[in-house]
Design a protein around this nucleic acid. Structure first.
Length: 544
RNA sequence: GCGGGUGUAGCUCAGUGGUAGAGCGUCACGUUGCCAACGUGAAUGUCGUCGGUUCGAAUCCGAUCACCCGCUCCA
């Protein structure tokens, strides 16, 4: 099927191209042919990422919003190691879940743990339970007509890829041969199930079915989603360590340390920003799913009874926050998880919600940007059990000892950068330079630019002076540019692609009337303002 | 992981067996008085990589890597 270019995929191509051309994002190891799932951030990309990270830190750690009842909220920061004791990942469940051999269904692609297959079939497989009611394996007797009826009705719905459903005649003939061939040793339930999953007995041997769709499962394979390396010079299992797949565990590991040293009391939060690593099955879609990525996670510790209140608080705050930095339109939604898609740790909780963005490659659907989950006390309980450390909190006000519950707003910094890039990317064909990055001023990597209209008549000197003044006041927030070369239109256009919100041009009137031209990125509109008011103008534009 | 597509200058692309190209961008100089302006000039490529066929390969074949699209997956 020839891949047809949709407007969205064209836009994505244009965006990727602009990112390369202007120095936002480069393919990692490009001169060596690249490396799947890794990306480098160029000068503008690094600054954009820093600005987003800083905004998050400021608004969630240094200056968090007031709590639900108007009380101050306390959040402290942390920066834990990427590599921790491997037992951490045993306790958290990351290691167990993926060190075990997994089998992939050829029909629906579902992954099943090999050692859990029969238990899953017995307890959690809808079609298998339905099918069991149609015969009694103990007696070994089968009612072919009844099974045929099941295959054509319920089976068709529940297990579309099961051999018995796809080709009941052939499958039932194998079973009949088996039952009649050895009447002394009737097949047990497992053997029946294998027969039900087998269409071409001689070609494939007995198959085992997918608990979800009934399709044949592939050979068990070890899927390792965590990056491994060795701490120490000897590369054996003794020294094997892992690169963290999430920053959250570092927070749980240090929860006691923070409590003991920071004078915080429940409820409080610990925040961390940093790189995480996952061997994604399929890195895809530019920087959306990469194997090295960056997270901004906050673990909010609270009393179990207050979990719902805080969940709703953080969920709403986090949604508003993304809106406040420029993802304000219909492209951003808050979506509550259905119960069947909850993570293992969130099953018992009050819920999970995702902040989702309509990326060009997910449109008209949405892709995850941040997840807000009630993790209950799953992690603290697991670490308490595995480490034997006492992690309970004594609540003086309640005179109660308990493991705090955790509300986790976990945002993707890398995904945030991508969403902001997508949201900012604008084409205006009526302009000589049609591509404009309409960044919110707070995250824009370049905050302002100063240009002499022409490179003579004293204008460059004035521009340099104004540039220095703006840099002294705003340089800590982002880049302040100046450039005396080439035509003014070309310099404006460059700033449009870099997403600089405003340019100031020193012109003839600056020399006589002490005014400059302020040129707006989004509208192209120009206005004259006093030279000595430029700094305040920028402050207002940046909201500082 | 499966199927399809693409890979030539920073970007977009032409070149289909015989000397490596264009537009834009970048840089320099000049000109220039408010939106990629104009003039002149310059730099930039092991044609993704490796191997094969051939007197000769960007071009044909094979493998491989990367990216894009569709399924799938993402505790």
């Amino acid at each position: 099927m020839p891949a047809e270019k949709t407007p969205d995929s064209k836009m994505m191509e244009d965006l990727v191209s602009l990112c390369k051309r202007r120095g936002f994002v480069f393919p990692a190891s490009e001169i060596y042919g690249g490396i799947n799932g890794f990306w480098d951030y160029g000068p503008l990309g690094a600054q954009l990422k820093n600005n987003l990270r800083d905004a998050w830190w400021q608004d969630n750690v240094l200056m968090p919003p007031m709590g639900p009842n108007g009380e101050p909220v306390s959040v402290v920061g942390l920066d834990s190691a990427i590599i921790q004791n491997p037992k951490v990942w045993e306790a958290s469940g990351h290691l167990a879940g993926f060190a075990d051999p997994m089998r992939k269904c050829a029909g629906c692609g579902h992954f099943v743990r090999d050692d859990h297959l029969w238990e899953t079939l017995a307890t959690a497989s809808e079609w298998h339970q339905s099918l069991l009611q149609e015969f009694t394996p103990i007696s070994g007797a089968i009612d072919s007509e009844r099974l045929m009826r099941w295959a054509k009705t319920r089976g068709k719905k529940l297990a579309p890829n099961l051999a018995l459903v796809r080709n009941p005649e052939v499958t039932l003939s194998w079973i009949a041969q088996r039952v009649n061939g050895q009447p002394d040793a009737p097949p047990d339930m497992m053997e029946f199930t294998r027969y039900f999953a087998t269409e071409q007995l001689h070609a494939t041997g007995l198959q085992e079915p997918c608990p979800r769709c009934g399709g044949p499962l592939g050979e068990p394979k070890a899927f390792k989603l965590m990056f491994e390396t060795w701490a120490g010079l000897v590369q054996d299992d003794e020294h094997k360590v892992y690169l963290r797949p999430e920053t959250a565990q570092g927070i749980f590991l240090n929860y006691k340390n923070v409590l003991d040293t920071s004078r915080v009391r429940v409820p409080f939060g610990i925040a961390q920003v940093g790189k995480s690593f996952r061997n994604e099955v399929t890195p895809r879609n530019f920087i959306f799913r990469s194997r090295e990525f960056e997270q901004m996670e906050l673990e909010w510790f609270c009393h179990p009874d207050e979990a719902r209140k805080w969940f709703e608080f953080w969920r709403d705050h986090r949604m508003q926050w993304w809106q406040s930095i420029g993802l304000a339109g219909d492209n951003l939604v808050l979506r509550q998880h259905e119960s069947d898609e909850l993570s293992h740790y969130a099953k018992e909780g009050v819920g999970t919600a995702d902040v989702e963005y309509r990326y060009p490659f997910t449109a008209p659907g949405f892709g995850e940007l941040e997840g807000i989950a009630h993790r209950t006390n799953f992690d603290l309980a697991a670490h308490q059990q595995h480490s034997k450390a006492k992690l309970e909190y004594f609540d003086q006000e309640r005179n109660e000892r308990y493991l705090p519950h955790v509300i986790e707003p976990a945002a993707g910094l890398t995904r945030g950068v991508l969403a902001i890039l997508c949201e900012a990317y604008t084409r205006d064909e009526s302009r000589a330079s049609p591509e404009i990055m309409k960044f919110h001023p707070r995250v824009a990597p370049i905050k302002a630019a100063v240009f002499p209209l022409v490179n003579k008549d004293g204008m460059p000197e004035v521009a340099q002076k104004l540039h220095a003044e703006l840099r002294a006041r705003f340089g800590r927030l982002g880049m302040i540019e100046t450039d005396p070369k080439q035509s003014i239109g070309k310099r404006y256009a460059r700033m449009d692609e870099a997403g600089c919100p405003v340019c100031f041009t020193i012109d003839g009137e600056t020399m006589t009337a002490q005014t400059v031209t302020a040129r707006d990125r989004d509208t192209g509109a120009q206005e004259k303002i006093a030279l000595d008011k430029v700094s305040d103008y920028v402050a207002q534009k940046l909201g500082v």
